[in-house]
Amino acid sequence: MGKVIVITSGKGGVGKTTTTANLGTALAMFDKKVVMVDTDIGLRNLDVVLGLENRIVYDIVDAVRGNCRLNQALIKDKRFENMFLLPAAQTKDKTAVTEDQMVELCDKLKDEFDFVIIDCPAGIEHGFRNAIAGAEEAIVVTTPEVSAVRDADRIIGLLEAAEVRSPRLIINRIRTNMVQTGDMMSVDDILSILAVELLGIVPDDDAIIISTNRGEPTVMDDASLPGQAYRNIAHRLCGEEVPLMTLTPKKNSFFSRLKSLFSGE
């Protein structure tokens, strides 16, 4: 029996889909059998981030309505044979699937897979209710911005009300330099507001944009700092204890690098 985990945030653009793609890929790298379910019907993205958009024949709506067998709608990844994607439909809307159908779908998938990772749409409406309907655990993604943290707070309240077990938090896109100068909320600031368990922190990195555009999750790149962060989180999802990443501010400007070169630092 596998675990059904929903990745949600309330606010859009904080990195739900990126997190789903990277955690799914990381778990597949650890030899787990993984399926990622895109529930953002009408605005599907997960297929692009995973680089699988040209393989879609059937989608989640076909699968729940019986237009095809579930296995026909599952797309096998080109890199890992134990990683699958159930894509969202692009031409329908969120009401094309009901909460009962989602519960049934998740029950079927968790018999077959170790991890069922559900990518939730932004918002708190029908799409959100569908996404959490079959989930047993939740990961809330937020960024260090007051608006994202407030939406995360709302989402945690809704998850608790829907009795999805104690949600865990990923803080995405941390910029250490800005935290140090006091221009960005720190991890502790966010935790004191949200009061939930911290699953991991992910530093902001331009590499994410490049890997997203290429359809190659950054977690596959050994040298990538956010990739390392996602691998750590995936280890924690497998029940291992991995210490939190220590983020040191990088000297990012050309001049500071030049200066350190001359001063011999």
Binding site: D153, I193, A195
Partner: peptide, 23 residues
């Protein structure tokens, strides 16, 4: 704790042992 989007009406006095978050 009272999270964003939660609203509580009380007939009487309220004593809250927790935070009330924005919203």
């Amino acid at each position: 704790s009272i999270r964003s989007g939660q609203k509580i009406h009380i007939y009487g006095n309220a004593i809250v042992m927790g935070d009330i978050n924005a919203g």
